[in-house]
Nucleic acid binder design. Sequence first.
DNA 1: GTGGTCTAGACCACG
DNA 2: GTGGTCTAGACCACC
Lengths: 139, 139, 139, 139
Amino acid sequence: MALEFHISPGSSTPIYRQIIDQVRKGVVTGSWSEGDQLPSVRALAEQLVINPNTVAHAYAELVRNGVAESKPGKGLFVTKRRQIFSKEERLRRLNEALDQFLGETVFLDFSLDEIQAMLERKRSKIRTISAGKKGGAND
Amino acid sequence: MALEFHISPGSSTPIYRQIIDQVRKGVVTGSWSEGDQLPSVRALAEQLVINPNTVAHAYAELVRNGVAESKPGKGLFVTKRRQIFSKEERLRRLNEALDQFLGETVFLDFSLDEIQAMLERKRSKIRTISAGKKGGAND
Amino acid sequence: MALEFHISPGSSTPIYRQIIDQVRKGVVTGSWSEGDQLPSVRALAEQLVINPNTVAHAYAELVRNGVAESKPGKGLFVTKRRQIFSKEERLRRLNEALDQFLGETVFLDFSLDEIQAMLERKRSKIRTISAGKKGGAND
Amino acid sequence: MALEFHISPGSSTPIYRQIIDQVRKGVVTGSWSEGDQLPSVRALAEQLVINPNTVAHAYAELVRNGVAESKPGKGLFVTKRRQIFSKEERLRRLNEALDQFLGETVFLDFSLDEIQAMLERKRSKIRTISAGKKGGAND
DNA sequence: GTGGTCTAGACCACG
DNA sequence: GTGGTCTAGACCACC
């Protein structure tokens, strides 16, 4: 299972919060399963090009909240999860997110092509990161 | 031009923002044209069963953003469409909206193709009318 | 950076607008720089002896206009200066402001030279710092 | 002297303001001279097909500003301009108008030259109108 | 503690 | 009747 992360460093929501939210969501949706190992603090920090402290901060809270647990000397692992989203639920959420996205951007006068190009570019970055390459994860 | 307003009071997006988005969408798609009068603050508040101040809040932002214009004592009217934001700002906003969208959907495990197909379908429903003088986005 | 706020409650310009203008002026003149924290909503409201909502109203518009940014739970901070408006929009606003100014002063019988001299004197006091990347106005 | 009024009921500037501005402009440009009588409230309201209250409102402000004066039982007459405000009062008003103007435009990133050029252009239009009269009241 | 949103109700300016 | 502003007080999310 590819562990995909996407953060926006420029956002007003703290980076560590973005990490937490994505891990939580990944667990809830079944993208990540019980027992899956999270990337190491240093690895993830390197991938996202952020401070390891930020990752550590996020991981600490995940442990505090019981989403993950630390096996000393081995790493961080996802704890028993509660529920997974059905196909319908996932579609509903995608639909909702798209509606919100369009609502915020229609008046910006971008063409569908421009938007799709930008979306593709961003997605390709995510793929690059989750493919495990170490060199090319630049922004 | 009577146009239906719909709000979801339980949504995470504030009510006043939902109103704004609907008006902007209506303007972009041509449901509302220059000179059309928006429903009065009190009327819309009554219709949506919300506080008039919430509607006023939304209307004030529409005026600030150049979407509508107030004729004192008469009401709010849709203005001639124009793009008030610089190219840079528009790109920044698109970028931000895309980041948020991705943050909320990466964990849903949809492929780029699936998302783009859905995006295309939604866009085709709202035939976008550009604000640019020559049919293109201006700055 | 402590910066004094002054409002005239009796003025025709709304209080929240006076706050906005003072912050913007402070940013333009360099009294406030990127990253500086604005006084809290409640603190400023107490200082000016006005309702916190009025301050919140002003702050919300500063955020919408990209002058400040909210860090959840921490406060409001001045953002990196940028020009969000298109050249067209900025000209439109300048034109509007000039019309209003002339409407209020033509009957005062000042010569163009007198007015320009006074304008120059005032401008020189607030050494304007451009938001443009290359020192000029951008769009 | 034909006292012609033109108002645009559809404009976003209030009708009473349009009336005030036209009288002021008329006085400044010499279209109206000291001692000229303004149309009665009821006559003007009838002519413009607007509410008499609106005209009364405008006239009241003209009197407050010293542009016109009421001779009870006779009507409203254009005052002698020069004796309206003291030098100090005129300076105070100019100062205030300039402050408001700068507050609204500093963040637009226009240079002093650009502003002064635009100001000059606008003023020259006024001069063109008032030319041919007994010269030199302004500029 | 911070800001963000919403409700309730008031007063003003304008027509 | 219209919108614009302000006050008062409430609840929320986030830190």
